[in-house]
């Protein structure tokens, strides 16, 4: 679905993405986790060809219209410039494609936006706008969906609902890669966690293999309690990790 090889981004002399190798397969819902400044957004943007980068990305290597057909992107900044009705925003394609009206309806339904569909999107609350933008990304109906902090600022119910929508999409054979800040939510809904630190991938695998005490201390600097519960992994942050002696 998407292959990255030695993907590297420099900003001035600083290396902000450091030779990342990553392969995502159909059916995977992968979470990109890591502290602020770990390079999550840079990875997503470079993979899409939105940033000048060295190395290889199978998506960025496509011609522009091909990229748009291969991958939908949900940027972190939720900035809707004009008071367009919700349904029109969700139906925004590009020159490459216009979404299928059935997909738009489905996305509106999935994100519980039907009652808001005629409202100008700029008049909605921040969380509602976030749902509109998730629906817009879903309506593109691309094999690959890259989402940068899609659930930040949503209420708990909307967060779970959005995670379920992404998981269903992956289960239907698509691929979703989302940067997230809640390891617990990621562990419960994602098939794969990718831990980033300092522009590199620190750990990558099934949730319970990645959320080890060592990894959490090294990447986030926290101590946490992770157990396998009846409904999936349970994550509870306890404290800051003691400073390490290296």
């Amino acid at each position: 679905m998407m292959h990255l090889h030695k993907l590297t981004v420099r900003r001035g002399r600083r290396v902000v993405l450091d030779g990342v190798d990553l392969s995502l397969n159909a059916g995977e819902f992968a979470a990109l986790l890591g502290p602020n400044g770990a390079g999550k957004t840079t990875l997503l943007r470079a993979a899409l060809g939105l940033l000048p980068a060295t190395g290889h990305s199978s998506v960025a290597a496509l011609p522009l219209a091909g990229r748009a057909r291969a991958a939908a992107f949900l940027p972190q900044t939720r900035d809707i410039a004009w008071p367009m009705p919700v349904a029109d925003i969700v139906a925004l394609g590009g020159v490459a494609q216009t979404p299928d009206p059935a997909q738009v309806e489905q996305a509106l339904t999935a994100l519980d936006l039907l009652p808001l569909r005629h409202r100008p999107a700029t008049e909605l609350s921040g969380g509602e706008q976030a749902r509109v933008l998730i629906a817009r990304a879903l309506a593109q109906d691309t094999p690959l969906l890259l989402a940068d902090e899609p659930i930040a600022g949503l209420d708990p119910a909307a967060q779970i609902a959005a995670m379920r929508v992404f998981a269903r999409r992956a289960a239907a054979g698509r691929t979703v890669l989302a940067s997230l800040h809640d390891p617990g939510l990621a562990a419960r809904h994602c098939t794969r966690l990718i831990l980033m630190k300092g522009g590199r991938i620190h750990a990558d695998g099934p949730p319970m293999d990645v959320l080890t005490a060592d990894n959490l201390a090294q990447v986030f600097g926290i101590r946490a309690h992770v157990t396998e519960g009846p409904h999936g992994p349970i994550f509870q942050a306890l404290d800051l990790a003691p400073p390490r002696g290296d």
């Binding site: 943007r45 939105l50 940027p75 410039a81 494609q97 817009r136």
Partner: peptide
């Protein structure tokens, strides 16, 4: 497409 910002526009083929 620019209604949703430059990244959204560029990633939708503009």
């Amino acid at each position: 497409a620019l209604t949703l910002g430059e990244d959204a526009a560029a990633s939708s083929g503009i």
